[in-house]
Simulated scan of single mutants.
Amino acid sequence: MGIIGWIVLGLIVGAIAKAIMPGKDPGGILVTLLLGVVGAFVGGLLGNWIFGVGIDRFWSLSTWLLAIAGSVIVLGVYRAVAGRKAVKGG
């Protein structure tokens, strides 16, 4: 899958991760979508490492599930870290 495919997939799964984990994000929707791109990459790495399946085909169900899982993980970590900083600073 090309770089444009990765970006498109990441933006879409970033929005899906936001729908799965609703709430106020410290960075807004743009940061959430960018975290989706990072999450898709993380999901691909974890899927390849754990299951031997990466995110190499755009229309594969495993690609989407791994990318969504990675995005939810990255969004959760981001909220935990950014939320902790907001509480400390406020």
Score class of each variant (00 low, 15 high):
6 W>C: 14
16 I>F: 10
65 L>D: 00
66 L>W: 14
83 G>L: 07
84 R>W: 07
71 S>W: 03
18 K>N: 09
44 G>C: 09
67 A>G: 13
44 G>Y: 04
45 L>A: 11
73 I>C: 11
7 I>T: 12
15 A>W: 04
68 I>V: 15
25 D>W: 03
6 W>G: 15
87 V>S: 12
70 G>W: 04
55 I>Y: 04
13 V>Y: 08
32 T>W: 04
64 W>F: 13
18 K>I: 00
72 V>T: 05
13 V>W: 05
4 I>W: 11
9 L>G: 09
34 L>I: 09
75 L>I: 07
33 L>G: 11
11 L>Q: 02
5 G>C: 06
57 R>P: 00
51 F>G: 15
46 L>I: 15
61 L>P: 13
28 G>V: 02
5 G>M: 06
64 W>R: 10
16 I>M: 09
81 V>L: 14
71 S>M: 06
15 A>G: 14
1 M>P: 10
12 I>V: 15
28 G>R: 08
31 V>N: 08
77 V>T: 12
40 A>N: 06
29 I>E: 04
85 K>D: 05
68 I>N: 02
90 G>V: 04
30 L>H: 01
6 W>R: 15
87 V>F: 07
32 T>Q: 14
78 Y>W: 14
9 L>T: 12
59 W>M: 14
65 L>Y: 04
79 R>P: 04
49 W>H: 10
89 G>L: 13
81 V>M: 10
71 S>L: 03
39 G>C: 10
18 K>V: 05
48 N>R: 13
53 V>T: 15
36 G>I: 00
72 V>F: 06
46 L>W: 03
5 G>H: 12
12 I>T: 10
16 I>N: 08
31 V>D: 06
2 G>M: 06
2 G>T: 10
20 I>W: 06
55 I>M: 12
79 R>H: 03
27 G>Q: 07
53 V>C: 01
15 A>K: 10
47 G>M: 06
65 L>H: 01
9 L>E: 07
53 V>N: 11
14 G>A: 08
69 A>V: 10
40 A>Q: 05
34 L>P: 01
8 V>K: 10
68 I>K: 06
23 G>Q: 06
42 V>E: 02
41 F>A: 13
60 S>V: 05
23 G>P: 07
36 G>K: 02
58 F>A: 02
2 G>V: 02
13 V>G: 08
31 V>M: 12
84 R>V: 00
45 L>T: 01
47 G>D: 02
42 V>M: 09
2 G>C: 07
52 G>M: 10
71 S>G: 15
43 G>H: 04
21 M>I: 12
90 G>A: 14
18 K>P: 00
27 G>P: 13
5 G>R: 10
53 V>D: 11
2 G>A: 11
83 G>H: 06
57 R>F: 10
3 I>V: 15
70 G>D: 02
66 L>G: 04
75 L>P: 00
51 F>Y: 13
24 K>T: 11
